[in-house]
Simulated scan of single mutants.
Amino acid sequence: MGVGMAAGLRTARWCVEQGWPVHPLARGRKTPVANCEACRVPGHSRRRCPCLTGGRWCHGFHAATLDRARVDQWWGRRPGMGVGVGVACGHAGLVVIDIDAHARPLPPRDQLLPGIPIPEQVDLTGLANGFHTLGLLAALSGAASPADDDTTLRVRTPSGGLHVWYRAHRSQRWQCSTGSGGGRSLAWQVDVRAHGGYIVAPGTATAAGAYTPVGPVREPAPLPAWLAGELERTSHLPAVPAPRWVPPRARQAVLAAGRASHGTHQSLSTVLAPVARCGHVPEGAGFSDALNRAAYTIGGLVAAGRVSRDEAEPALRDVAFAARPGQERRTEQIIRSGMAAGLERPLHARRRCP
């Protein structure tokens, strides 16, 4: 067994000891080992594939295992196997924040922090990568950036980025914002690795360089509450299926919006309308995004003195609870986060609400 093979096996065994299912990566790369010929046939179905039940490594993180004998076979006995180790994040109960530092032009302002509009008067000079956008997102919540979190496992990537590992509660099925992520985004040049994806294990070496732990900590800390709230706000946690009987909930939402419009400025009912409309369908409809935008806008209106917080915030809560009953905890987190950001950005009469 070569030195590189031994290193890969040691890393894989260490990951298994942590309870993290592993799968092999291609030699010198950060991508999974290629499927066998049978699995590359057009129309092949992973769900019925005998490779997964037969102990083979086809289909990437779907083949990840905690079986020590299989790990020894994959990394220790098969010539030509790659030495890299991938960890299936979802089954490991991990949420990994993948921060990039690529030299790329800035996107439009509304894509820097999805769901949080950045006014034109805010100077973006110096903002250049994911370290900056994640730091900005953390600052809006009054928290330190995960990039600076020395209480958890952090891994420097060959490209100059950083993987920040957190431990999630097993009952929460956090979703990726890359690969099969379905268009989710936490911040520009910041990806989330969770269910539906994998992460390169620390100690893995590729042709581009090694994935090197930063500092002495080797265990993921619990996912911070503020970051969990931001992940929920940006749809990284699937909505809990709501009851299928829709009309009563829809009527409740519309009535709540109507009551609010009588007690506050007319613009408030306009802000609440998109949230109320989500009550017409049992799930989806972009509820998290609609609620976040409404909370941010109401925060801005309150900061500008255009509406009363004592009236506007309960009205928003009533509409949101009616539109998505049974999701009160998640709804409260989105409202708190959105309003906190909006209170920092007063919306005066001549400004257009986002």
Rank of each mutant, 00 (worst) to 15 (best):
G196P: 08
D100F: 15
L272A: 11
H348K: 14
V302Q: 05
Q121F: 13
T234C: 10
H44P: 05
A303N: 02
A139W: 06
S159Y: 08
R324I: 10
L134W: 01
D289Y: 14
V95E: 01
I298K: 01
Y198P: 12
Y211A: 04
E344F: 05
I334V: 15
C89S: 06
W20M: 02
P158C: 01
Y166K: 08
R251Y: 09
Q252T: 07
R154F: 07
D123P: 02
D123V: 15
G126H: 07
R173E: 09
F61R: 08
E311T: 11
D100N: 14
I99F: 07
W174C: 11
I99D: 10
G229I: 04
D150A: 15
R293T: 13
T331A: 03
L291P: 13
R104E: 15
C176L: 02
R48V: 07
R218F: 07
G142A: 07
S141K: 10
P346K: 05
R259H: 07
P222T: 13
F61M: 10
V33T: 11
Q333P: 11
A144E: 14
S269I: 12
P325H: 03
W226D: 04
A6C: 03
R78W: 06
W14P: 04
L316W: 00
P243L: 09
H62I: 09
Q18Y: 00
L301R: 07
V87R: 06
D318G: 01
A208V: 03
P274L: 13
P202Y: 12
L66V: 09
T11L: 08
G299Q: 02
A260Y: 00
G305D: 15
G300H: 03
A144M: 10
C58L: 01
Q121I: 12
D100H: 10
P108T: 06
D110K: 05
L347A: 15
L231G: 08
D310I: 04
P105V: 00
R350N: 15
L124K: 13
W14R: 08
T212R: 07
C353M: 03
A147P: 12
V281N: 04
G84N: 06
G209F: 15
A69T: 15
H91L: 05
P32I: 04
A221E: 04
N35A: 10
R329F: 13
P119W: 02
H195D: 12
S159P: 11
V96W: 00
G28L: 04
V16W: 05
A294E: 05
G54Y: 10
H62S: 11
H91Q: 15
P216E: 11
Q327H: 12
A128R: 09
Q172H: 12
L66C: 08
P42N: 05
A250P: 06
T151M: 03
G326P: 00
G209T: 04
V319G: 13
P243V: 11
C49F: 12
E230Y: 00
